[in-house]
Simulated assay, not measured.
Amino acid sequence: MVLAALGVLFVRKAVHAALLLAVVMISLACLYAVLEAPFLFAVQIIVYTGAIMMLFLFVLMLVGVDSSDSVVETIRGHRVTATVLGVLFAAVLAIGLGQVGLAPAVGLTEANADGNIEGIAAILFSDYVLIFEATAALLVTAALGAMVLAHRERTEPKATQADLAARRMKAYADRGENITPLPAPGVYARHNAVDTPALLPDGSPAPTSVSRVLTARGTVRSAPDMADDIDAVRRQMSGRPEPEADTSRAAVQGETPGDSQRPDRGGEQA
């Protein structure tokens, strides 16, 4: 636990510091369990490790704070304010530690005579009420610190819908970019493959609906060209016989079915 606590102070990444702080909290919960304090053990695991630490990690991953952001002063004068408040807090801790009196240990049996939860409540709101309030102030300070980390000073006014529309129109006039989003592959088509182009209202393929890489490779397919394949698959699934279009075509050309598959026998006529 001590090594993890030192790691919180000296690691360079905020996410690593939060994970090491979770190790400290879990180790502290184990100490509570050894000292026969089941209530504090459960609270330490459920509230601090399970809720507050996960909230810290979620904020860090959402904001993406790294070591370079810690030297950027996003709020004017917050370094001086933080220094003054830190000195005042250190003075309060020094005064509190100076007034601590060491009494002989009474033992766990006597401490938990009326119950562990009842004994904690009696001591927490009587002898240690100042420390309890200081802990509450620390939690509020942690929440304010998260707000400071998430703060980003805006250098320009927020763009409105009219501004975004004007930018799209300007990009269309300057570079010919699409005003609306690109059509998705397969829209209004008879196939949902990514290499099948979407169809425009007039029925022609939309060239911007397929990746340029597939177009350069020549693997773009047309949905109408695949209609015969789709019909063949449907007939095969339904058990219907194949149409006799090929037989009639062979008869028109003066061939019998199967002549095209016969090998050449020295120019013999079938």
Rank of each mutant, 00 (worst) to 15 (best):
A4S: 09
G7F: 02
F10L: 06
F10S: 10
R12E: 08
R12C: 03
R12P: 01
A14G: 10
A18E: 09
L20G: 00
L21G: 12
V24I: 00
V34L: 02
V34C: 04
L35T: 02
A37D: 11
I46H: 00
Y48Q: 09
T49L: 07
M53H: 06
M54S: 05
L55I: 08
V59P: 05
L60I: 14
V63I: 15
G64M: 04
G64I: 01
V71I: 09
I75M: 12
T81C: 11
T81D: 12
F89E: 13
I95G: 07
L97C: 04
G98R: 00
Q99L: 05
A103M: 07
V106T: 07
V106A: 05
G115R: 04
A122S: 12
S126H: 12
V129R: 15
V129Y: 11
F132S: 14
F132K: 08
E133D: 10
A136Y: 03
A137D: 03
V148K: 12
L149M: 13
E153G: 13
T155S: 11
P157C: 02
Q161S: 14
A162Q: 15
A165T: 13
A166I: 03
R168F: 09
D174I: 01
P185R: 06
V187A: 07
R190V: 04
R190P: 00
H191V: 00
V194T: 05
T196P: 06
T196R: 01
T196A: 03
L199K: 02
L200R: 01
G203I: 02
S204E: 05
T208Q: 09
T208W: 14
S211P: 03
R212I: 06
V213H: 14
T215R: 03
T215A: 07
T215V: 04
T215N: 06
R221I: 00
R221F: 01
R221P: 00
D225G: 03
A227Y: 01
I230R: 11
D231T: 04
V233T: 08
V233E: 14
R235F: 08
R240V: 05
P241W: 04
E242C: 00
A245N: 11
D246K: 13
S248V: 02
R249C: 10
A251L: 10
A251C: 05
E255R: 15
T256C: 08
G258V: 01
R262H: 04
G266V: 07
G267E: 00
E268H: 11
Q269D: 09
Q269C: 07
A270H: 14
